[in-house]
Design a binder for these strands. Sequence first.
RNA 1: GGUCCCAUCGUCUAGUGGUCUAGGAUAUCGGCCUCUCACGCCGAAGACACGGGUUCGAGUCCCGUUGGGACUGCCA
Length: 495
Amino acid sequence: MEGVRVRFPPSPTGYLHIGGARTAIYNWLFAQKTAGTLIVRIEDTDAERSTEESVGAILDGLRWLGITWDEGPYFQSAYASDHRQAAQKLLESGHAYKCFCTHEELERKREEARKRKDDYHYDGTCRNRSAEEIGRLEDEGCAYVIRFKVPRGPGGVVHEDTVYGILEKKYRDIEDFVIVRSNGSPLYVLSNAVDDIRDRITHVIRGQDHLANTPKQILIYEALGEKLPRFAHMPLTLDPKKRKISKRTHGEMVAVQYYRQRGFLPWALVNFLVLLGWSTSDDREIFSKDELIDAFSLEGINRANSVFDIRKDDPKFFTDPKAISINAHYLRTMPLDELLPYVQAELEAAGLWSPSFAGDKKAWFESTVDLIRSRYHTTKDFANLGRPYFADVFPMEEKVVRKNILKHDNLKEWLPLMAERLEPLAEFTPDSVEQAIRGLATELDVKAGILINGARAAVTGQAAGPGLFDVLAAVGKQRVVQRLREAPSFYEAME
RNA sequence: GGUCCCAUCGUCUAGUGGUCUAGGAUAUCGGCCUCUCACGCCGAAGACACGGGUUCGAGUCCCGUUGGGACUGCCA
């Protein structure tokens, strides 16, 4: 496919949210796949709600996700004259007309229609005004909007959507819609189409919520004598109550930024989002960037809306479990080199980072990260659950101390004794440590598990973790010995 | 209300008339592994919204019902 040009046109009224990110991802994938061009166009014509910070946040979100674009960001507001010119052209060619009906009149008619339980469409009061009449009204200083003159009579707008197939909208179901406000500023339906024409967009890939105004835009394209792009509408992302997700009702949970802050790997998020409404017919769900670009196709997009299974107050999942599972999958399987920078960033943010981790302790750091990553879900876990490996101060869970240490009175002596046995070891490796501890267990005639679990609790404050001998080797002799010697203090503290 | 779109396990989905006693993923439960937890492996439970048609045969086609969604703005 030659010359594909697609666009992502966010309106800068907040951060980049999940739905927008997904739209951007689909456009990006399609551009990548076809060696086409992705354009970012900021639709900032709603001056009241648009902010500069928002533009920054959206672009920042895209960059973080790894979505690259080829042109832009363009700003729609810079092209207002294009939009006005198009409206003028439509006026001149008789495809649009000036409407002097006031807000009040229209509101009254709408209200009446509502009472009659009737469908309300603009009644065309101004559609057939004579030139003199229009001139007179203008001279009187009456404000007017510009409406598109929708063909009347039978028939309708027919087009084939790549995802939804052939769609027909009857002319009679389309009212003469406004394309320019009374203050002269163009409306979305016009400016979006005009911009797409100017940007030579070949494929409009956007949310299904735009399905309804596609016929209007097609009418505009045709009236302007322009070639139609291909439309592909994608299903919407809903919350578990089947409501369209939005910044307003869901807050930060639906912001890309939120996932970044909660320790998501950008590619894991992309991988999760692309699966919301798109799939291949084989069973693959995990894709590298190249694999995804290769596998992606508009035809694989689903028609039904999908539910983003956000779990607001679930103690176990802070978001869709599948998203977390994909993130965890990448965390434990991605090349270690690629993971390290994320871990470093987390440790730095938590004040646990030491330059030596990238210097003389690099090998140790890498093997430690590799040791613990298989049971973590987000990069945040390295700074929380991983604390005992990287710092001297870490939380001791009381429940764990009770269960794995205090329950066995003898550990009060055994753990310090273990320290005595470990301290002289010339080599502090999983093997040598195991030998020493199993030897001690035999000598004391206790099950090794008691010593092992007690040691894990004393050294990490946690009941779960990697194999204890690996843990000890990772934490290091000095810290291990010290922590084991401090074990008796738990008995005093708890008494 | 009107117009349009949609409908398979809790969630994401495969499925384009027979190979579907409906497959995978995730979540849940059980087992194996084992010093614990995770990973991994094995297993269980779990869905074609309903009703009519068409057909030798329907998850797959048609109609209706129900349910959900979008749009219905001088927002984008």
